[in-house]
Design a binder for these strands. Structure first.
Length: 229
DNA sequence: TTCACGATTGCCT
DNA sequence: GGCAATCGTGAAC
């Protein structure tokens, strides 16, 4: 078995215990696999974002879920590297992170987009609204959906069955970076250019800024745990 | 206990 | 290009 030049023979989990911002470009081109009852899907990662924990006093990350410290939801981010942190957002979407850094720190890489390289039919069943193959995992919520991941998978080990993570045999030829998207406030500014993607890849997500929520809903009755069906 | 909002997506015009 | 959908989370009271 040949030594991967990216890891220099280093075990993958040990590699993932490093700095998320340095790991991000290395994970581009890596293939994440999830095998479940309805089939296995493999995604080649084309876009990721780094998030740091509160323990990094030099770079406090206001865009991170762990900015205010550990909670039951973000607990996996403080766990060992190589595990998944999956969270639920906007009342309907799941987003997937791979935990990085040494245990006790809370850095992670958000998987923003990828290309389905195996199990396309399974991914298509899960992503019935996708029109083209490139759309199947273009966007963090789409990627989670294509892989069949939910919060039930948060905290599970991405390096052990039914998951699997394989780095590319060689670095991707060209990596771009820029400010993270969808992160409000300072965490989304140029100061945090921790979004990395494969230059020119068609599956890199095209983010549409969320519409700023109206300061106050129209006076159409009390808010009873969400909009009436 | 209440309330505002989010690391987004897909439908509609 | 604009906007509604939808609910878990955590801060505020």
């Amino acid at each position: 078995m040949s030594i991967n030049p990216l890891t220099n023979g280093q075990p993958l989990r040990e590699l993932l215990s490093g700095d998320a911002r340095q790991l991000a470009p290395l994970l581009l081109g890596a293939v994440l696999t999830h095998e479940s009852r309805d089939g296995a899907v493999s995604v080649r990662l084309t876009e990721v974002e780094a998030y740091l924990g509160p323990e990094d006093s030099l770079h406090p990350d206001p865009g991170s879920h762990t900015y205010r410290g550990p909670t039951p939801r973000n607990a996996p981010m403080f766990g060992p590297a190589g595990h998944l942190y999956v969270y639920f957002t906007y009342g309907m979407h799941h987003c997937t992170n791979i935990v990085c850094g040494p245990e006790g720190t809370a850095s992670a890489l958000l998987l923003r987009a990828g290309e389905i390289v195996a199990g396309t039919d399974v991914a298509r069943r899960r992503r019935t609204t996708s029109k083209s193959p490139a759309d199947l995992a273009r966007g963090p919520a789409r990627l989670a959906k294509a892989l069949g991941l939910t919060t039930a998978d948060s905290g599970r080990d991405a390096l052990a069955p039914p998951f699997g993570l394989v780095l590319p045999p060689r670095p991707v030829p060209s990596v771009s970076s820029g400010p993270r998207v969808g992160v409000s406030g300072a965490g989304g500014s140029d100061q945090y250019s921790w979004r990395f993607w494969i230059t020119g890849d068609p599956t890199v997500s095209q983010y549409k800024a969320a519409k700023p929520r109206a300061a106050r809903p129209p006076a159409a009755g009390p808010r009873m745990g969400g909009p009436a069906a």
